[in-house]
Design a protein around this nucleic acid. Sequence first.
DNA 1: CTCCTTGTTATACGATCGTATAACAAGGTG
DNA 2: CACCTTGTTATACGATCGTATAACAAGGAG
Lengths: 210, 210
Amino acid sequence: MGVNPMLNQGRASFTREPADQRRQALIDATAACLAEKGVAGTSVRTICARAGVSPGLLRHYFAGVDALVAETYREVTQRVAETFAAAVAAAGDVPRDRLIAYVTASFKPPITDPSLLATWLAFWSLVKTDADIAKIHGETYCAYRGDLEDLLGACDMASAEAGPVAIALTALVDGLWLELSLDPTTFTPEQASAMAVRWLDTLLERPAFG
Amino acid sequence: MGVNPMLNQGRASFTREPADQRRQALIDATAACLAEKGVAGTSVRTICARAGVSPGLLRHYFAGVDALVAETYREVTQRVAETFAAAVAAAGDVPRDRLIAYVTASFKPPITDPSLLATWLAFWSLVKTDADIAKIHGETYCAYRGDLEDLLGACDMASAEAGPVAIALTALVDGLWLELSLDPTTFTPEQASAMAVRWLDTLLERPAFG
DNA sequence: CTCCTTGTTATACGATCGTATAACAAGGTG
DNA sequence: CACCTTGTTATACGATCGTATAACAAGGAG
């Protein structure tokens, strides 16, 4: 009657998915866009096209693009943390082995996935301008350094030293990671891993700093 | 006659500047925008407003925004390289002093300027998506590593080892730099410098890699 | 003073941005 | 089978994006 039946024709068919699944699909699409096209190429339409849904659906599950990007950062961060925790758990009981496992996990699959590195790099560039991203970044790195300090402490490093050492180790790992991401041709993950271990050995053997 | 004299009133007055000066002003404005608002907040209008000129003027001096950003990367890169070169020149003739001067220059003014670090971080995020930026980045890091290898060679390091060592040093410096940029509260430039020197000492004392 | 060149501004155009809204359809419930 | 809820699509809106173009004014040449 009042409704025009003509309009039915152009409407695309769709299937209803569980909320968790849709959210995850959007998060995965966001990570993929950030990795492939960078921050500038990651828009509502780009993300939703990648996820295979209509642009309007994003706001049904998230407060907006920025919120989705932040949520993606949280998800990626958590997955990385779980990978590290699993590596430590699989390393056995020897403190030094556990520490080395934690550090070298950064240079093994699934962390060495180029797409993951590229996504991470995009997040770095957002830390300075996006308050939410900055908050997540701060928490993440605080937790990472905390884990590192615990593992260093288990290797009989004085707690006063573990702090700076954790920072230096984090910096080296991030720097190697950055290098791998920006120009993978000059460098292999195995080489990066070997250098990190070597630096670690040095710090454990000669704990005095300065 | 045919021209409507009414239109004169709304036109802003301006002064003609030398081409070099205008180009430099636009480059400086671009760097400032990248540092303060990130890639997403760096647009033609933003840049030109910062430079105090009309948006249309950008294309009078550059092929487009992307070209201006690339030119800005070149300019910043060159200025950093000159700073490093000056530090080495001022360090005297002792090879080890020269090497340390080159590495620690990254953690002294003017390199530690937060705005410079933030700008650099924005460029990193563009390497993956912008071909011009990637090209400049490749050349820059190749030159940086080349300088480092020469300085290491002067310290009697075997040339076969200087390559990987240069990469590792670059990674550590970049990682410390990244940390300083993303979260300056956990870290001082002096601490970063001390850690880099320590790593350098280790590498020079025990040159065998693996 | 007058003309001419051109650096500069102002404005317009199409594309794309994030978001809002209403129509629609899918899938369960009675 | 009819109804209802709501996940999903389609479309629209204002803002901003990069760029193109034409009017204008600044400053030197004659």
